[in-house]
Design a protein around this nucleic acid. Structure first.
Lengths: 254, 254
DNA sequence: GATTGTGAAACGCTTCACAGCT
DNA sequence: AGCTGTGAAGCGTTTCACAATC
């Protein structure tokens, strides 16, 4: 029994808040860009602007990782890249399978951002026999009959589902049964998974609907725009938050 | 003058919390499925399970929209579908342009979830002259030289950016200059936009990195799994949250 | 008896503001 | 003088628990 916590108090893994975890990849991207330009150090202010968050939040986030900065100076770029990579588990190689090689699956297979972050597309899987053997992004597509074997042979623990909605749950079940414990779901369905499996989902249509909501509001609000006067109008909001990142990611501890 | 709030107290548009707005599409999807099966009413418990949230949250969410349920009975499915659609602005037609017709852009163009939700792909735009005229998802690709004209002619206010990272900001600037006020960004960059423009972003690699973080933790935690005994092990977590939905969407009021 | 709608408590995240270090 | 690291306050969200309603 040990601690006896049945449904986990909330997902804060070893003291790092989920909201912070969700931003680490953002910082990492900004830092990588700085690193490529051979910038040696950054202040929280500069890095925050590059990542699109505010500096107090960034400093608080980093404080959960440890004291990696130098007061009066800033953060060492290379050192931070390493620390964040390590924290995210990107110093190791993650074999990933993509199931469902339609337009989206192909796009994912071709996406450069994976390889550069420690993710390796170990296999592409599709249910269509006509696809079998056909190379996509230089990787031959394999038939879904062999899904279990592929997972086991490659030691895959992360699976990406890019199938139509109807196929997602069966595919998910097979992935999990074969040993996958993290799933990124692009199919517009709620997946049921056993305890210990994490699911994250990306739903393209949902994002558009949220935009439509705000867009609709704008149309019905032709006043605040006109009365503030002209001057401070077209200023860019460089450091504002954007997108579904100020997450409460709710990674399903399941 | 009016209220005099300069930088918006936080993005709660007309009393509906952002977190709630982000879940409305989820409820809508579940309700649509029930509607297709001709289910007349649902309880908060049932609908919550179908949407992957808990029922208290769902009831609270609906309470912001009004009192649309009947105590002792539940919610009328058709009525709720209508109310949520209206709230999200989906009863009107939203012309959308997709810029960058690579693998991802093509996948988006072919994605069925748009059309069924009031979104209409008004145009596909790409910078490659070789693509011009080529039909993708039945829509001929147009050259980006004509971007401004396309936006204006079609009255487009929502743009989707699926270009490489380097092209995203220039494309964004042109979209905004031409009148687009909501942007869904798939390029791995932070976009700067003027006030009044909303940006949401979807970053495939970030989602995987978050999964990797949790995956790494699992590997170093071989104890809670083994000692709880066998019985209650393989139970499905049907109603748990999943993915980046328990959002604080942080739609950039910009 | 069942189920909604909602105050109030609990929780986690963000922001402030400044002490502490270089 | 400059910038980090962080307690404490402020806010928004979730959850609880029960009165109101059918």
């Amino acid at each position: 029994m040990a601690t006896g916590r049945t449904h986990r108090p909330a997902t804060r893994s070893r003291g790092i808040p989920e909201a912070t975890v969700a931003r680490l990849p953002l910082y990492l991207r900004a830092l990588t860009a700085l690193s490529e330009r051979s910038v040696p150090t950054v202040s929280s202010e500069e890095l925050a602007a590059a990542a699109g968050v505010n500096s107090a939040k960034l400093r608080k986030d980093f404080s959960y990782l440890g004291s990696y900065g130098t007061r009066g100076v800033g953060y060492d770029v290379e050192y931070l890249v390493y620390q964040i990579s390590r924290e995210l588990g990107l110093t190791q190689d993650w074999p990933v399978v993509i199931v469902g090689i339609g337009n989206l699956g192909a796009a994912l297979a071709n996406y450069g951002g994976f390889a550069s972050r420690g993710f390796r597309v170990a296999a592409l899987i599709d249910a269509d026999p006509a696809m079998a053997g056909k190379p996509v992004a230089g990787i031959p597509v394999q038939h879904s009959d062999d899904l279990e074997k592929i997972i086991e042979d490659n030691g895959v623990s992360i699976g990406v589902i890019a199938t139509p909605a109807g196929a997602a749950q069966p595919v998910c079940d097979r992935l999990v049964a074969a040993g996958v414990t993290s799933i990124l779901n692009f199919a517009p369905t709620v997946l049921s998974v056993p305890d210990g499996v994490d699911v994250r989902k990306v739903d393209l249509s949902i994002e558009l609907q949220i935009l439509a909501f705000h867009e609709q509001r704008k149309a019905g609000e032709e006043h605040a725009a006109a009365d503030g006067g002209g001057p401070a109008a077209a200023t860019r909001t460089d450091s504002a938050e954007q997108g579904p990142d100020g997450d409460v990611p709710a990674v399903m501890p399941a």
